[in-house]
Amino acid sequence: MKNNRPRINVPLEPLDNIVDLISATVLTMIVVYTAINFSDLSETIPTHFNASGEPDGFGDKIYIWLLPAIGIITFVVLFVLNKFPHFHNYKFNITEDNALKNYRFMTRVFRFTTLFIAILFIFIQYMMIEQGKGNATGFSAWFTPLIIVISLVFAVFIAIYQQKINKS
């Protein structure tokens, strides 16, 4: 697949560095919190929660490391993909004139997506660990609808903002 989009360097701004640093910090906190609490977990922990926030799937406590691993892999993959914004998917034709603003926007979308995932994962990991230690905590009924609403608002924002920056 030939890509004729301009290949330009997208200089990082302070916001980019701050969001990456917060994401990395949250992911580090997930790993540290998991390591600190691992020995206190029962041998069987909740691995899945239904829409009401009640555990409905269980597994060996080693699975507590799955979410931190997925979070770190996601961070690394999206971090690397941000180095190649000309490969991202755009619904507008990318030219020399609009490349920087579109590339910067899409790399920020990736950064904020990573941050959203990290925050979501630390909350889920906390709940899994607390349940695995026998504490009767669970997700509220608002958790799933809130995540859906936030995701939809983010998607609508992306579509509207991308339309705005590409008006000629």
Rank of each mutant, 00 (worst) to 15 (best):
T34I: 00
A35H: 06
I36T: 13
S39Y: 08
S39P: 05
D40M: 12
L41I: 07
S42R: 11
E43T: 10
E43P: 04
E43I: 04
E43A: 07
T44P: 03
T44W: 08
I45S: 02
I45T: 00
I45E: 03
P46D: 05
T47W: 09
H48W: 11
H48C: 12
H48F: 11
N50V: 07
A51N: 13
S52Y: 10
E54N: 12
G57V: 07
F58K: 04
F58D: 05
G59N: 01
G59Y: 00
D60A: 14
D60L: 06
K61A: 01
Y63L: 15
Y63S: 15
I64Q: 00
I64G: 01
I64V: 03
A69E: 06
I70D: 09
I72G: 03
I73A: 13
I73H: 06
I73K: 05
I73M: 12
F75I: 14
F75V: 08
V76A: 09
V76I: 12
V80G: 09
V80H: 12
L81C: 12
L81K: 02
K83R: 15
K83A: 09
F84T: 02
F84G: 03
P85R: 02
H86N: 14
H88G: 08
H88P: 03
H88I: 11
H88C: 07
N89A: 13
N89C: 05
Y90K: 09
Y90L: 12
K91W: 14
K91A: 09
K91Q: 14
F92E: 10
N93Q: 14
N93E: 15
T95H: 12
E96R: 04
D97A: 09
D97I: 05
D97R: 09
N98E: 03
N98G: 06
A99K: 04
L100S: 01
K101Y: 11
N102S: 13
Y103K: 00
Y103R: 00
R104T: 12
R104Y: 14
R104P: 08
R104I: 08
F105K: 02
T107S: 07
R108N: 15
V109F: 05
F110E: 09
F110N: 14
R111D: 07
R111T: 08
R111C: 02
F112L: 10
T113L: 09
T113Y: 08
T113R: 03
T113F: 10
L115W: 01
I117L: 11
I117E: 04
I117K: 02
A118P: 04
L120S: 15
L120A: 14
L120N: 13
I122T: 08
I122Q: 03
F123K: 13
Y126A: 10
Y126V: 02
M127E: 13
M127G: 10
M128V: 14
M128N: 12
